[in-house]
Write a protein that binds this DNA or RNA. Structure first.
Lengths: 187, 187
DNA sequence: CGAAAATGGAACTTTGCAGTTCCACTTTTG
DNA sequence: CAAAAGTGGAACTGCAAAGTTCCATTTTCG
């Protein structure tokens, strides 16, 4: 069932799917196949129907983000420094985030089926936020979940600006961190 | 072409469309018609095809937001106080914002056709942000456009949390303002 | 009240994408 | 090199939603 060739093809399809669907959630399967440089027949061979493709792509995107979070070392160093690394890591997986976040159905319908094992309890980012709140670095007047949503939301906003051409890629990390840490207030 | 009856029906259709499409952008026309308490035939009579309905709904949503901004008096009082009123006004038009922002295609494809007259230059929110930057209230290290996007993004994030049931409606305005003004930092 | 306007149910046709099948072709691998 | 694995073009079918048409019924208003 699995061979080097099949693995490479499957990977290409899932990455293309996330990338295309991140930009147009109504993209057709032929569009995705083309982006993956694969025939429509091959796409259907790997993923019999659209829903299975979505679930697999969501699974893969979650894995990629999990890996990025691990490498960011959310539990290392001071909360502020760790958060900087987390933001940088999130920005390196912008396609995945835009794919997962771009559609409300994705998080409410697909992800539960794709990764029922994931829950807030074991999320390293939530842990980091709680650690930062306990250490007096992050706001304790709002919930850790809200801070996480804001983190994702600001990253998402920044990615959209990059897509629109109104924000340079190299400005994303510093801009997001600045806004995250001080909001829109002046010095 | 226009009568009291027609106006009321059209208005009901457009508001229902924005409300339904905000929560499910793949909603079918029968679904929208039902939400508007109108027959499918009537819906088609008012808006011959889906695209015309989308454009009209976007136009109306933009108008409603414009009106809300006017009433907020973005050019009155101190920038901070004005921003508080703007946030409150945005929160009162959450359906419109979720509709307009929920789909990337909406802003890039529909709105240019719906309201080609709108531009950043005459946007009262941008004016307010620039005024606040000049007065030393808002961050000048980032562009006024970025601040506007963050404002919308945080509001959108909050609305999603309300939909998900993880944030109470009455908490939206204070939470958004707090995060907007200080980010996630502790005191 | 009665004419005009507006509505909506129902039964269509059209359209576009999803999913299937078949077979020739190419690449991998023992 | 030859068998096996993988690929993709093309021509299907199936289906759900879009859009159309017709007509009986209800609502509005002079």
């Amino acid at each position: 069932m699995s061979s080097p060739t099949r693995n490479r093809t499957e990977r290409a399809i899932l990455e293309a799917a996330a990338s295309v669907l991140a930009r147009d959630r109504a993209a057709t399967l032929p569009q995705i196949a083309q982006a993956a440089q694969v025939g429509r027949t091959t796409l259907h061979r790997y993923f019999p129907d659209r829903e299975k493709l979505l679930i697999a792509a969501a699974e893969r995107a979650l894995e990629a983000m999990d890996e990025a979070m691990m490498q960011a070392g959310a539990d290392q160093g001071t909360p502020r420094e760790a958060m900087h690394r987390v933001v940088a890591a999130l920005c390196s997986t912008s396609d995945q985030i835009m794919f997962l976040w771009g559609d409300k159905c994705m998080l409410t319908e697909v992800i539960p089926r794709a990764a029922p094992h994931l829950s807030t309890d074991q999320d390293p980012v939530i842990d980091l936020i709680r650690r930062g709140q306990a250490a007096g670095d992050f706001d304790v007047e709002v919930g850790a979940e809200w801070i996480q949503q804001v983190l994702w939301g600001i990253c998402y906003t920044a990615f959209e600006q990059v897509e629109a051409g109104t924000l340079a890629k190299h400005e994303v990390v510093p801009t997001v961190i600045r806004t995250l840490e001080r909001g829109i207030a002046a010095d």
